[in-house]
Amino acid sequence: MDSLMEIEKNDDLAFYGQVNASISHELKNILAVISETSGLMNDLMELSAGGKKIAPEKIMSCGHDIVEEIQRGFGTINQMNRFSHSMDQTISRVDLIQLIELMTGLAKFLSFACRLRLGKPPENCSTIRTCPFRLQNLIYRTLVYAFKSTGPDGEVHITIHRETNDSVCIAFSGIGLDSDEPFPEESTKKIAASIGAEVRMTGSNRTIEILVPELVEP
């Protein structure tokens, strides 16, 4: 029973499952659009075959919409692939902007997501050596909290700056006041500690900061 309890408490697995569930939901939505659009195309062609005059543009428009959705699907699968490969190496040098863009892209699949704006980072803190999977988990948890607190009409601004010579700060500002949940809670603090990071909230301007050390030794 102990080993089963360990699985249940495994934050990494829970995070992986949560993200994959939201990706599968997004893919189902894409397939639903393709299904209805191709269904409409078929309806129109059947009507046309039955002698009703159908403007060719209507059918072409369906084809265009299907191609767009397929591209959206490729984009989603590409994100899924990048996320899955983030577990390949426990510690590696990662491009912070790419990592944040991936997590914001995945978090946007959540139905309660708000708008996100990512600021351009200074040259001296664009990459970092860390555990990409755990850092992704921290960013995702922060985004989920930010969405719940801010609401779908709000906007959260994400910036990166060098905090000290050996640490970088990822800041999420513009967080709303809608959520009563505490943040960071114990499990988030634990994940942060495992990569030498710290998650803190500054009360006055509702900003969450993730301080990430530049180097994590294996």
């Binding site: 939505n29 639903a32 659009v33 209805e36 659009t37 269904g39 409409l40 309806d43 129109l44 009507l47 919409d65 959705e69 139905s111």
Partner: peptide, 17 residues
């Protein structure tokens, strides 16, 4: 449905019926 194209396409298909 917040999936706008889905809502629009399904509505068109129902309207055709």
């Amino acid at each position: 449905d917040d999936e706008q194209k889905f809502a629009m396409m399904l509505a068109k298909r129902l309207a055709l019926r």
